[in-house]
Design a binder for these strands. Structure first.
Lengths: 210, 210
DNA sequence: TAGATTGTTAATCGATTAACAATC
DNA sequence: TAGATTGTTAATCGATTAACAATC
C-alpha cells in the first residue's frame, strides 16, 4: 500500500514504537531525536530512521520528530484509526481472559460477538457481550459481517472452524491454537500466539544461559 | 553450552520442530527426511539440516532422521527433560487462564505457587494451588526457591515486583506486561508475550493486505 | 549562519538457500 | 554396489549498522 512491501521485521517493531511514543507524549515530550528514542528503546538510531522512512518522511532535519505527529502517523499505518469487527470463537478460560484483558478498540478492532459450543457457557455474559451458540455463527455473520476472529478453541476443532469462518468471509485470524492456518488458507492473514512455544523457548533459555 | 552461541532464529524454531515430531510420532512415523519434514512444516530442507546441525549430527546419510530419537534430542536441548519451579504473579483473568490453560510440565516448568494482592482472589483455588498473598512472597521463595516467574500483574506494579523477584533469586520471566525487564535487569532471561502488540500487528495486516 | 539531525546510500553482518562431497 | 540423504561449505539474500550529504 504505502510504498513497496514492508518487511516483517519492521512491521513487528511498529506497535512498540507506537506504545513508546504514547508514553513519551504522556510524560510531556514534544519532540525527540532518533538518537534519544533509540537509547530509550534499546535500538540504534539508524534502524529507527530506516524504519520510519519505509513509510515517508516523518521528521525534520536539525529538529527530530514531533512525538504526537509521529505517533499519529504510525497509528494510521497500523490501522488504529478504524475498527475491524471481530468475533471470539471459544469462550473458555483463555478466550474469556483475552476478551476481558485486551483493549480491542485501541488495537484497531471491535469485539462484537463471542461463541462457544458448551451449553454451560452459552448465554453467559462476557463484558458487554452474551456468549452465543456456535451453531448460530452463520446467522450472526450474515447480519454483522465480522472480518476477523480470535481462535481460542481446542486444536481438534480448529481446522474445521477456520474453514467455516473463511467461508463466511472472515479473513483475519488471531490464532491461539496450534493449527497451521496459513498452510491451508493462503488468502487469509494470521497472527499466531503460540503460548506453549513461547514458554518452551523460555525453558531453553533457563537451561542454557546459566 | 552445547556448541557455540545458537542464533535466536534457530531457537524459536525448536519448539515447533518438537511439536511436529510429536505429531509425526503419534501418526506412526519412524523415520523422516529433511525434505519431507520441510514440506510438512513449510520450511526448506536446507534450513532444517542447518538447524539440527547446530547441536550435533542427529541424522544418518541415506536414511534421514529417526523421528522419536530426534524429538527426544530436541526435547533435551529445550530442557524439557526436567522442570524448573515457577510461580505466577497476578491471578486475575489472564493469570488464571494461563495457569489453567498451559501444560507446564511438558514445557519444562512446574507451577508451584500463585500470588495476588486482591483479597477477593487470595485464598481461592487455582487448579491444585491456592492463591497466596503477595506479601508472603519472601517466605515462600526462601522455602521453595522458584527460579522462574510469570508476570500477569498490572504495568504499574511490574517494575517493582520484577526487582523484588530478581532479589529473591528468580532469573527467568514469562512476561505478559509491557514492562521492559531486559533493559533494567541484564542478568535475567525474559520471554515477552505482548498480546496487545500481537493484535496490533494483525490490525496492520488487515488494513494492508486487501 | 552554524549546529543538529534527518533521509538515504553504502558497508557490514547474519540468516537462508543452494550445492555437493561424504557416507550410510 | 547404487541410491538416497545427510553434514557442511559456498553463494545469495535480507536486515542492520555506519556514514554522509541534504536541509531545517
Amino acid at each position: 500500500m504505502s510504498k513497496n512491501a514492508i518487511s516483517n521485521s519492521v512491521i513487528r517493531r511498529l506497535p512498540r514504537y507506537h506504545r513508546f511514543l504514547g508514553e513519551l507524549e504522556s510524560s510531556g515530550y514534544v519532540r525527540i531525536s532518533s538518537r534519544e528514542l533509540a537509547e530509550k528503546m534499546g535500538l540504534t538510531a539508524s534502524q529507527i530512521r530506516q524504519d520510519f522512512n519505509c513509510f515517508g518522511e516523518f521528521g525534520q532535519q536539525g529538529y527530530g520528530y514531533n512525538v504526537s505527529d509521529l505517533r499519529a502517523q504510525i497509528g494510521k499505518i497500523l490501522g488504529l484509526d478504524k475498527q475491524t469487527p471481530m468475533i471470539l470463537l471459544g469462550a473458555g478460560n483463555l478466550g474469556k481472559a483475552i476478551a476481558r484483558h485486551i483493549d480491542f478498540r485501541s488495537k484497531g478492532f471491535d469485539l462484537i460477538g463471542a461463541f462457544d459450543v458448551d451449553p454451560a457457557i452459552i448465554g453467559r455474559k462476557l463484558g458487554e457481550l452474551t456468549v452465543l451458540d456456535l451453531a448460530d455463527l452463520e446467522k450472526f455473520c450474515a447480519e454483522h459481517k465480522p472480518s476477523a476472529a480470535i481462535l481460542c478453541i481446542p486444536q481438534q476443532a480448529a481446522e474445521k472452524e477456520a474453514a467455516r469462518l473463511v467461508g463466511l468471509g472472515v479473513h483475519a485470524f488471531w490464532n491461539f491454537t496450534h493449527y497451521d492456518l496459513k498452510l491451508t488458507h493462503a488468502d487469509v492473514v494470521v497472527e499466531n500466539v503460540h503460548l506453549g512455544d513461547s514458554l518452551t523457548t523460555l525453558s531453553y533459555s533457563v537451561n542454557t544461559i546459566e
